[in-house]
Write a protein that binds this DNA or RNA. Structure first.
Lengths: 340, 340
DNA sequence: CTGAAAGCGCTTACAG
DNA sequence: CTGAAAGCGCTTACAG
């Protein structure tokens, strides 16, 4: 019995036309107060809820957006609470605008056909690159998009990015300030123009500023995961260059790294200082707590929704590019070089 | 231009009726191979995708399900990677069945009206209780549901639960086996028939079995969060009963606890042994790594989807209640009592 | 201020 | 094997 009642039923009972019912519901047209009350009462009584499908069949918009998150394993979203926080932010931003959020984990075979099939109003896309197969497909959809952490060069695209270069700089500078000179980097895929690329640029700038020559041996391109970080510890531990500082470009990898260090008998921060990136919820509870680059992930998600809806509604007065600031949070995982 | 092409356009170009096009798309009716090919070719060329709204307007089903996750802060989903893993599992299960997943974070005011409005095929509901305001509302929707971690007594309900009692028992037994007798419990809301309730029952059973009298002072009902665990450490540290073992009913609270212990100078596991619950992705990378009760969260999510779709499609031969097993994972956070 | 009618893009009997 | 037609539940000009 639940879904049977339609605008027609309301019209019949309230003794008006369906057009009037529609007008009442949408606040469109001119309807007398009396009629309005009468109709609203019936709507109340029958607990009427308009059909979204019928609406979007007419309107062409669905009040549905999707968050697109890249895959790692076939069909499985990244094992990183970072994404959860981001998605939370999006969901939270959307609920204030009566829009629902579809969660879409993509792999390289995703064809996005359901985006058109469902008349999605827009997409929030996380972490694609210009070279990603998904990138062209998404653009060809002709649907409003906001890209998160994607660093696409096309200035026409709406993007919310982090000031990654500054993050890379700040973390490195911090280590240098503590006296470290052999500073390794744990980075995810180092693609031109990608997130990690900019963090790395910041790292290089800090080195340059302090006259420290860059050393390619110190750059470890790893899986940006907890396992990736763990494995990196082995490589760093036996490194010829006497590394005393490591900058991991994600907190999850930093966590793996610290554990890995611990297992080969290197102490953090006594032997090696470690800086992370993201400021995931657990960083301050780690032992040692993690010095890291903070970004406000939830509000980033919210910003993306706002931007997307502005774009959809044509109220896009905001600029097409928002860069979220970062800050350094100093905790216990970093220490002065050779301090005893 | 993207969304303009409809079944009508295909029909015109292919020189057939729209009914035939529809039959080709759905594999219904009888269509000659020739016609089929012709139509399919046109569909290919025009990149035609059927409109989901038009379909669900007829069919009454939308191929859309929602994952309903309880709020903590107003509109903000729980700060616990557990939910992320669960949602991942659901998303993953759904994508294999051409169903999309809407993410819905609810607070006590949620009225679920969009469930009917959108003709959602079903709901996967996480962690409600019989007393939850959401519970009655959801039932009155008359929509297929699968409840996760909800322990509802109505046998007609489809549920995927964990063997929490066994989990509580196993963890406690493990501590007792190591010689601990003053074993505290860190539990979230201890509602009759809720997740924590059963874990607690398991704890009591283990105590009873070993002739250890239960001590209400040792049961700390806390916020099941990392902060909650942290704060609990203060209380436990100065506890009069000389606690040597703690069983935290979630890994996040265990993490907070261990850090809290550390901060007041109690070593884990030397002074206190700690057991967690969930086996979140980071547990084995903690220092010390966490002894915990493992559940396969992702496959739990997948099981829920399967169950839901079986129910929707009327192929529900499976029983209405699935209980996922747990196991004890022994790591470094537990140690023999007074071992030196 | 109110209503009749067309049409959004499909599916589904029903003829032929 | 194929097509004409009705109808799902809305919204939107257009009359009146």
């Amino acid at each position: 019995m639940s879904n049977k009642v339609s605008i027609k039923d309301i019209a019949k009972i309230a003794n008006v036309s369906i057009a009037t019912v529609s007008n009442v519901i949408n606040g469109t047209g001119r309807v007398s107060a009396d009629t309005k009350n009468k109709v609203n009462k019936v709507i109340q009584e029958l607990q009427f809820v308009p059909s979204a499908s019928a609406r979007s069949l007419k309107d062409k918009n669905s009040h549905l957006i999707a968050v697109v998150v890249p895959f790692v394993e076939k069909g499985i979203l990244q094992d990183n609470p970072f994404y959860w926080e981001l998605v939370r932010g999006v969901e939270n931003g959307a609920r204030n605008h009566e829009v629902q959020v579809i969660l879409l984990g993509i792999d390289e075979h995703e064809d996005f056909s359901f985006v058109r099939g469902r008349h999605l109003d827009g997409l929030i896309v996380v972490g694609v690159y210009e070279q990603s197969p998904a990138y062209r497909k998404i653009l060809s959809l002709g649907v409003p998009c906001v890209f998160l952490d994607s660093y696409l060069s096309d200035p026409a695209l709406y993007q919310v990015d982090l000031d990654d270069e500054a993050g890379g700089y700040l973390g490195t500078k911090h280590l240098i300030g503590l006296g470290h000179r052999a500073i390794a980097v744990l980075t995810g895929r180092l693609e031109q123009g990608g997130v990690n690329y900019f963090r790395y640029q910041g790292y290089l700038r800090a080195l340059r500023e302090s006259g420290i020559p860059e050393n390619p041996d110190l750059v470890l391109e790893i899986d940006s995961s907890i396992q990736g970080g763990y494995q990196a510890a082995q490589r760093l531990g036996h490194h010829k260059d006497g590394i005393t500082g490591v900058f991991a470009f994600s907190d999850v990898s930093a966590m793996g790294l610290i554990r890995g260090m611990h297992d080969i008998g290197m102490r953090v921060p006594e032997d090696v200082s470690v800086v992370g990136f993201d400021d995931i919820f657990y960083t301050q509870y780690m032992i040692p707590s993690l010095t890291t680059i903070r970004q406000d992930i939830v509000s980033k998600g919210q910003a993306a929704v706002t931007m997307l809806l502005d774009q959809i509604n044509g109220t896009a007065t905001t600029s097409r590019r928002v860069t979220v600031p970062v800050s350094l949070i100093v905790r216990q995982s970093t220490n002065s070089f050779r301090k005893i």
